[in-house]
Measured scan of single mutants.
Amino acid sequence: MAAAAAAGAGPEMVRGQVFDVGPRYTNLSYIGEGAYGMVCSAYDNVNKVRVAIKKISPFEHQTYCQRTLREIKILLRFRHENIIGINDIIRAPTIEQMKDVYIVQDLMETDLYKLLKTQHLSNDHICYFLYQILRGLKYIHSANVLHRDLKPSNLLLNTTCDLKICDFGLARVADPDHDHTGFLTEYVATRWYRAPEIMLNSKGYTKSIDIWSVGCILAEMLSNRPIFPGKHYLDQLNHILGILGSPSQEDLNCIINLKARNYLLSLPHKNKVPWNRLFPNADSKALDLLDKMLTFNPHKRIEVEQALAHPYLEQYYDPSDEPIAEAPFKFDMELDDLPKEKLKELIFEETARFQPGYRS
């Protein structure tokens, strides 16, 4: 834990890192770190609560700039109880001085990944967590956004079992017609939660990839272990087919990539493993919904509104309290091709509203 900075004593240090967030945020305490930044909790002297502050230093890398800009653009436009918001952003007053960006968010005690390492969940908890994931996802999908990296560590939890989806750095506007060349190379989302079509096709992607990830998360809540822990690309596919069985001819016809289709045709026939054999203690309604989410063919996979209306979630289902976005989200430009200098300018502009004396 960093010592509390005395008023006016300059930035606090946390594990050798400068955290320049005073005077409003003090009493910093280390939480963890990701690929390009550290997260601390801090005391907000204005709202009198502890908050989470993520320090991001992305400006050396085009990919990190892209992810940072995506996350900020999306989260500043989203407003939903099951999606983490941005409360404040701290950065230098000029673009030349801006080396880091500090993002202030609600402090959540833990995440689903940490929880599943230590606790076996009751059916009631599984049901409530799944409902909140789908409630947040309904809003995301209504904005025409794909999260693309749903996994237990991106689901934040607090002691009252509130759940918030975080990390929109890989999110995209849904565009089933656009052929994202190089899709697989830039697709760094965790393999275990990846839909089979991501490994088999490169053309376009749809909201059904997020539903697949939610199915993987439900299976993990039922058993405290990942359902498809593939060691590499082909191993991942083999794990999936080992449980779902061989795809039907109709399902194979959806695979545009001939090499991928021929690979699947070359494999020995596998039978589907019954879900109640894998999860003998699970609620039968939970397994019915799991089956509809972990469907090989993305066109037959359940959609988020149908999933919310499934009998497993009937005690929570309330369409009048499951809000959607006001308007579909649009990125003005494809960020993939922009140089990091341009992305830095866009991050600077996007964060201006939090600067003292800002006038829109």
Rank of each mutant, 00 (worst) to 15 (best):
T160M: 03
D167Y: 14
Y205L: 03
K117H: 05
F129A: 02
Y358C: 11
Y43E: 14
Q66C: 12
K344C: 00
N276D: 11
N154G: 03
A2F: 00
E345T: 02
K300R: 11
E12S: 12
A219L: 04
V51I: 15
S246L: 05
Q97V: 09
P196H: 14
C166R: 12
A35D: 13
L76C: 08
A4V: 12
L28K: 04
S153P: 02
D288F: 08
P11T: 14
E186R: 11
R148P: 08
D332C: 01
G32N: 05
D100Q: 11
Q66E: 12
E334R: 00
D177E: 14
H147N: 13
P328V: 03
K330T: 00
L234S: 09
K292M: 14
G242C: 15
A35L: 09
G245Q: 02
D111M: 04
L237E: 08
K207A: 09
R194A: 08
K344P: 10
E345D: 15
D336I: 06
P298I: 01
P323F: 01
Y36C: 15
A325H: 00
C40Y: 14
G16M: 06
D149P: 02
C161F: 13
L130K: 02
A174I: 07
N271R: 07
C254L: 09
I209C: 10
C161Q: 09
G85D: 13
E349W: 01
I53E: 10
E71F: 08
E345Y: 10
L116N: 02
I198K: 09
E349K: 13
Y233H: 14
R91Q: 01
Y193R: 10
I227F: 15
A309I: 08
N27H: 01
K285E: 12
P280Y: 12
M38S: 11
T190M: 09
T118E: 08
I89L: 06
L156H: 05
L116V: 03
T295K: 05
L115S: 02
H180S: 05
E334Y: 12
P247C: 00
I133M: 12
S223V: 10
S153Y: 07
F348G: 04
D283H: 08
S41D: 12
H80E: 07
L290M: 12
S248N: 08
P229Q: 07
A195F: 05
L252C: 09
D162I: 03
L346D: 11
P226V: 07
P23G: 03
N27T: 09
C216D: 06
M333A: 04
E305I: 03
I165L: 07
L252Y: 04
A307Q: 01
I165Y: 08
P328S: 12
D177C: 06
D177A: 15
S153T: 07
A260Q: 04
L252H: 08
L137N: 09
D177G: 02
F19P: 03
L112R: 00
D44T: 13
P196R: 06
E96M: 05
K151D: 03
L265R: 06
D111A: 15
P298G: 01
Q236K: 13
Y131T: 11
S153I: 12
L252P: 12
V304I: 12
A174T: 13
I256R: 11
L335P: 00
N201G: 03
Y30T: 02
T185I: 12
V173Y: 01
W212R: 14
E305A: 13
T181K: 09
A42R: 04
R191H: 06
H180E: 09
Q306P: 10
Y30R: 02
P11H: 15
E334K: 13
T159M: 05
I198Q: 02
A282F: 02
H61W: 13
K54H: 00
Y102Q: 04
T206Q: 06
N257Q: 04
V104P: 08
R353H: 07
E186F: 00
E12M: 00
K151S: 02
F279V: 13
L289K: 04
D124I: 07
A3L: 00
E326F: 02
T118R: 09
L346V: 07
N271L: 02
R15N: 05
N201R: 07
E350A: 03
G230N: 00
Y30L: 05
N271Y: 14
E322W: 04
M333I: 15
F348K: 10
R261I: 09
L76G: 02
R77C: 01
E220Q: 02
K231V: 03
I302F: 15
L184A: 03
A282M: 01
I347L: 13
L218R: 02
C254M: 00
H80L: 15
E60N: 13
S248P: 05
Q132P: 11
